[in-house]
Structures are given as C-alpha cells and as structure tokens.
Write a protein that binds this DNA or RNA. Structure first.
Lengths: 260, 260
DNA sequence: TCGAATTTGTGCGTATGTATC
DNA sequence: GGATACATACGCACAAATTCG
C-alpha cells in the first residue's frame, strides 16, 4: 500500500524492472494479456496500457498473433560529430560497436552506406530564414535526404541552402553532379566558400508518423534531432539542416578539447 | 476512405495538425472528451487515447478538472556545451532565449542557478567501469546532482570518479569544500590533474518514473541524455557522468570548428 | 486442409474518483 | 450542491495474424 501510482504504471514498471534485471532477456516473450490479467488481477485495458508504455519506451515490440517481445535496445552505433568527420555526406562516420562495448576503432566494418535525395526550390519558411539569417520568403534550395546503412534507414535529413550562395554555380544541387558525395564543406569549397564552423543544436522528441515510417520504427518513439548550421568565415550561414535519427539505435559523439 | 490508420491516430494527427497550423494556439483548450466524442463520433476510450498520444508527444498537457491545454513547446533555452563553457558546475551555461527567437546573446538574465548533491562511495558497476577504463568493482565516488534554474528542476546528473584519482586529497567530495563550485576541471586542477578532453555521447529516451518526478514532467516524456567522460593528458578517464535534461525544454549546443 | 485456440491491436460502453468552476 | 472535466479502471467485443492439432 501507499503506492499511489496507477495500476498500469505499476505493472509497466514491474515489467521494466524484470527486463533491466535480466529476468526477461532480449527476444523473450512478455506474458500475454490473459496471463498478465490473471497475475496482476487487472483488466484487459489496464494490462494493455501497461504494455503500451513499455512499447513506447522502446523496451518491447508487439508481433501480431505471436506476442510481445523484449527489444534489443543496445545502440547499433555512434555518429561521430567532430572536426573532420562531419563533412562526409553521411554527416558523420559511423561506429558500429557491436557485442563488445569497446571504444571501437574505426572499422565501420564493411557496412554499405547509401543515400537518396530529392531537391527543390522554395521560399524560406520563417524558422529556416531565421537560422540562415535571411528574410522569410527568400529562395532557398530544400533537399531531403534519406541515409541507409546496410539497406536499413538510419538517418533523415532536410537541408536548406540560400540560393544567393550557390545560384548559377555547378554545385547548386547537393544531390547531383561530381560534388554530390563530398558533403557541404567539399561542395561549397568548390565554389570558393570556406566553411569554418558548424553549430549543432541537439534535442529530441517523439517521432512523427511519417518519420516513424521512414525510419522503420513506431510513431511516438524517441528520435534525436540535430539542427545544424554551417557558417563561413564571415559568420554567414551557408547551410542549415535538420537531422533525425532513431534514438534507440544511434547516439551522437562529440569531443570537446580543452585547450587552456 | 483508404485511410487505414486507426481512429485514435487519425484524431490525434488531426489535432496535432490543428496545433501546428496555428488554429489551436499555445494555451488554448483542446475540445473536451465529450466534445471530441461527439465531433468524431468515437468512444470515450478512443478520444482519450488520441489525447494521450498528443500528451506523450508534448503537444498538450492535462489539468485536472479544467481541460487539456496546448503546451508551449518552445525550448526554454540551450545548454552550451563547448570549450570553456563546459566546466561550470552546471556543466554548461544557459541561454534563455525567450519570446524572441534571436540568436540570443549571453544574458542568462538573472536566473538563479542552484544545485543539490549527495555523494557516496560504491564499487563501480560494469558499464561505469568500462567507461572509466577500470576494473568492475573498483571503488568509485558516486555523486548525484540536481540542478535548479529559478527553483525549477532542469538537469539531473550522476557522476562517477575513480577513487584512485582523488583519494586522500581535499577534493574527494565534489559537492563539498572550496572547490565544489568549480566543476570537474577546476576541482581536479587543484590536485594537479589536467583535464584536456571531454567526450560526450548524446542520446535520448523516455523518462523513467523517478526522472520524470525529479524533472517535473510525466513519465515517458522524452529526455536527452549525455554520457560525458573527462580525460586527462594520458587519455585516462578521470570522471564520467550521466546527464539528463527534459527534451521539450532544453537543447544542447555544440560548436564544431573546422581548422583545415 | 481445415478449424480451433491464442494473441495482438483496436474499439465501445460504463463506472468511479477527484479536481475545478 | 451541481455541472463539467480529467484520469483511471473494468468488461466486453471483433478483426487479423499466428500456432497447433
């Protein structure tokens, strides 16, 4: 007694603890609704709600007609986001430390990295204009990326570039031409724009329905969002993008040097 | 027709769009359950479930007996996590850009920053030992922090330090003594340990029940988690910590210089 | 091959407690 | 007190998918 939490939360926390403590291992089936109903003496709805909490937390995953199973929540890898690594098209190199949690060298062991993109010119929406330091409505090139690692969707990105920077050059389209795979820095370097700094604002939120579909997870699952802006030597924003990754699978790694 | 999504998701998406498009502004009351029930011709449970989706996504917040209201999802501020700023006890300076979305200078406008901490010696759990590069079970000092900005909980942190570094010195306890407010670098500098680098692994996940309680949000809401490790000149880990912030309120800012 | 039993996912109707107005 | 509103909970039902005899 004295436990004022609602029943469905108690059940959910109980199950979660059983997973954390290793009594329910990855791949194991969580007791079915009828079992839970009996064990906890709760109603159908209540145990279902408890299981939904677990699923929303990424602890479990339901399979139609089969059962609910404990998810493998070990991160697949890390996106390196430090000087030098950030300019590949993938916006980061990928560490796929798997099994062992070692600092994990560089291998990226033969994983195939591919991406698709589509671009179009649009007037800059207000928040994007603000990030780019331009007036709302000014023309920008909006590019949507979808990155795949081993045929699995990993990262979504939407990039905006002011056309005042690239218009008329042969790097207008980030996804086409010889500079397509060189990333923002490489591409802009080709037209004499030196990117000297990137600012990344990292946040997280539940995935929207289309994001979940693209990333192969369920809506509402946690995604990590990076709002990245590239600046040139004059502190002018030359590109900004929103980067979205599944939080349960990927983490971002930053290294902060103390030069003092 | 042709919309195969379940009813509760359609209602949720519909409400979400109404918020995104500005028809329902921040602070506005979402139609009550009985209204939604009537409008969408759905059952009590179903509309409730739709509203729960919105709440889980941080779009709305229920108030007992009053109604469900559209949440202010504008981030309160940004935690600066770049060279120099990271060594304050708060692990970051705080930008509170409010109202205007300007790049926001430095003000931190008179916000009162306080914190509480409690420490204790324990054997290192396996994952912590790995992060510190020591053997599991070796003694470490575990410190729990709770940071408040304007009396509101903002950030939770748990720090682990190998006792081999600080044992016997007067900076053993991070939360006590003259060096308490100087952060990891300041404290360790006092005993001749130079921290030259920090590595931050950024991820996110739903808040656990105790975290939600401490941070003043609901369980399952998105939190951003930083796994930070400080290294000295010999690449030895001298401290590691888990930092947890509400994702709907705070973002992390990293600056990446390109020295090329 | 067929059918019955399970299990998930979704949905409806109702009831109770509690807080606000 | 009464009306309204949220939050939780119970019981029941059905479609779809899987499993098994």
């Amino acid at each position: 007694m004295g436990d004022s939490r609602p029943v469905y939360l108690r059940i959910a926390d109980d199950l979660r603890r059983r997973i954390d403590d290793g009594f329910l291992t990855v791949g194991a089936r969580i007791p079915s609704r009828s079992e839970l109903k009996r064990v906890y003496a709760a109603s159908d709805q209540t145990v279902d709600r408890a299981v939904r909490v677990l699923k929303a937390a990424g602890y479990a995953e339901g399979q139609f007609g089969r059962g609910v199973f404990v998810t493998d929540r070990a991160p697949l890898g890390t996106l390196l986001r430090t000087t030098g690594a950030v300019d590949t098209p993938f916006a980061a190199e990928i560490h796929t430390a798997r099994g062992n949690g070692l600092p994990c060298g560089r291998p990226s062991g033969g994983t195939s990295l591919t991406w698709e993109a589509s671009a179009g010119e649009t007037p800059a929406p207000a928040p994007i204009a603000e990030r780019l330091g331009i007036a709302p409505g000014e023309p920008v090139l909006r590019t949507e990326y979808e990155y795949l690692a081993d045929r699995h969707p990993v990262q979504l990105a939407t990039s905006w570039e002011p056309l005042t920077v690239t218009a008329g050059t042969d790097v207008v389209h980030p996804e086409r031409g010889p500079y397509a795979r060189r990333g923002v820095r490489g591409r802009l370097a080709a037209i004499g724009v030196r990117v000297v700094r990137a600012r990344e604002l990292v946040g997280s939120r539940p995935a929207t329905t289309p994001e979940a579909e693209a990333l192969g997870c369920t809506a509402g699952q946690c995604v990590t969002v990076v709002e990245r802006t590239h600046f040139d030597g004059d502190d002018r924003a030359v590109e900004t993008s929103d980067i979205v990754v599944r939080a349960d699978r990927w983490r971002l790694e930053y290294t902060i040097p103390f030069t003092s």
